[in-house]
């Protein structure tokens, strides 16, 4: 099942969110994510929509892997909800041995928050849904 992995030597990557045209809700989501980033155990986030992408991770060498993991998780959540008739996907939490990834869609914003194992995902979800 595990496919062959391509090995690309990765160098410089984006560490700063880029400034592009934003919708109001994207601004709100990003503001919330900036606050979430200050929570205990939060490593960073990826925010994507049809017009822009913002990535803020402490370790920029992992951006590409985390971006793929994030999109795989969101894609899986949609497919599984359809497959098992689970309605609308609210969120998907992938728990690794070292890190947790919480992914969800708010409006047209696809969000993934990367945290350490001890981080409080409920608190993050509450903050993101407070918009």
């Amino acid at each position: 099942m595990v496919k062959k992995k391509k090995s690309f030597p990765e160098t410089a990557a984006i560490t700063e969110p880029i400034a592009v045209e934003e919708t109001t809700s994207e601004k709100d989501v990003r503001a919330n994510l900036e606050e979430i980033k200050t929570y205990d155990g939060v490593i960073g986030y990826i925010l994507r929509n049809s017009t822009s992408a913002a990535i803020d991770l402490k370790d920029p060498t992992k951006i590409i892997d985390y971006a793929i993991l994030s999109s795989s998780a969101l894609e899986a959540s949609e497919k599984l909800c359809e497959l098992f008739d689970l309605g609308e996907a609210k969120n998907i939490n992938v728990e690794g041995k070292d890190i947790k990834v919480l992914s969800l869609v708010i409006g047209e914003n696809r969000i993934s928050v990367f945290t350490e194992k001890n981080a409080d995902c409920e608190k993050i979800l509450r903050k993101l849904h407070s918009l």
């Binding site: 992992k62 993991l69 795989s72 992938v94």
Partner: peptide
Amino acid sequence: TFDGILEKAEKIGGVEGITLEGSKGR
């Protein structure tokens, strides 16, 4: 569907668990 997640999961130390919450189930 899980293939993509499991493939990249080594970057987070391998998968211990996955929880998906939908509006009608999980």
